[in-house]
Design a binder for these strands. Sequence first.
DNA 1: GTCTATACAGTGATAGAC
DNA 2: GTCTATCACTGTATAGAC
Lengths: 216, 216
Amino acid sequence: MSAETITRTETDARTRILTAAARLFAARGLGGVGLREITAEAGVNLAAVNYHFGSKEGLLEALFAQRAKPICEERLRLLALCRAARGRPPMLEQVLDAFLRPAFSLGLEAGVDGATFGKLRARLSVESEELYRRILSRAFDDSTRQFLDAVTAALPDLPSAEVAWRFHFMLGTMIYTMANSGRIQSVTEGALDPSDPDAILARLIPFLTAGFRAPA
Amino acid sequence: MSAETITRTETDARTRILTAAARLFAARGLGGVGLREITAEAGVNLAAVNYHFGSKEGLLEALFAQRAKPICEERLRLLALCRAARGRPPMLEQVLDAFLRPAFSLGLEAGVDGATFGKLRARLSVESEELYRRILSRAFDDSTRQFLDAVTAALPDLPSAEVAWRFHFMLGTMIYTMANSGRIQSVTEGALDPSDPDAILARLIPFLTAGFRAPA
DNA sequence: GTCTATACAGTGATAGAC
DNA sequence: GTCTATCACTGTATAGAC
């Protein structure tokens, strides 16, 4: 009932709130930005957030669902390509690339670049509170589970529990790199610059494939 | 000027605040707990936190410095053992174990177990705000840099920039596992239980050593 | 239905009395 | 040193205008 009657010249309040929230959350974190600032930037009344999204966390959930969608779709598209052109390079490399590449390169529509969304995603990923787990699960579990299956299939000799552990370790490298906390720059005194997706993947894929193929 | 005159029968306010904050922060996160609850549990006045620690974040910094100390000390003790008994098992395995084991098993004094402190540490580790970076740097950089050097020495054929990247990836696996967000349980429907330090290390070390030894 | 103004209970921080 | 009182601010809820 909302798709028919729209012949808008400007974006509606809901979209403007989402855009402003994406920029501000990503830039300064969840706690670092208040609703008054978001609504001011979006040009709406303070109460509009609670009207449209129920709560600040409801807004976060909507934002996440929106941003995760293109990432998951691109993942599945690349996974289908893996299955079509199997063999060379080895399947494991192809599958890991299909999983990781969209996470590092996508998410940049509506004026918020992928890196800042990655930071937001990383923050949620280390949270154990039930609400945040649910948001991440809804957004990514389907896609993630398909890739866990694909990796398991690519490593037929490895016990599936072992594959799951290593997949978990891979998620850690991905999340921590997306977080781009600046910690590795601090330790290495600025030698690394984790911002170019291609450069990251060129380092990460060989590391991970070797780890996945380690003897159990 | 504070170490001389103490002949206390009870712990002082500062310590009681730290203990209460450690428990509550770890259990419910930074934003999830207010100063009024901390001070109530510690049996002190609300203003005592700002008097003793300057701010809520000052309290966090003090808490972190206190907890990080035994971890770093144990790390360096184990690193010294590596150098004494070199050769078997291979140096890389020894060094990684020395780095990771204290992070997973220690931190449990003063009534807060290591796992909950690990969660708190993980949350800070993906934060890019300057303040949190500083807290982590002060607490861990010295120790971390020594281990980066030790790993570099154990991999003489690998360019040092490559070692730094892989070290960064290792930090990701460590932080994400410490966070224990429950995400891998969600994807695998509960097959994994990342709580026993020995079990984690038995999975993690082979994965990481294979990754570190991958051809550049 | 959508939006606004306003009020409310909570937070961390702080000045100043004791 | 410690405490009280208060400040500016937060997210949320609601009554009512269009």
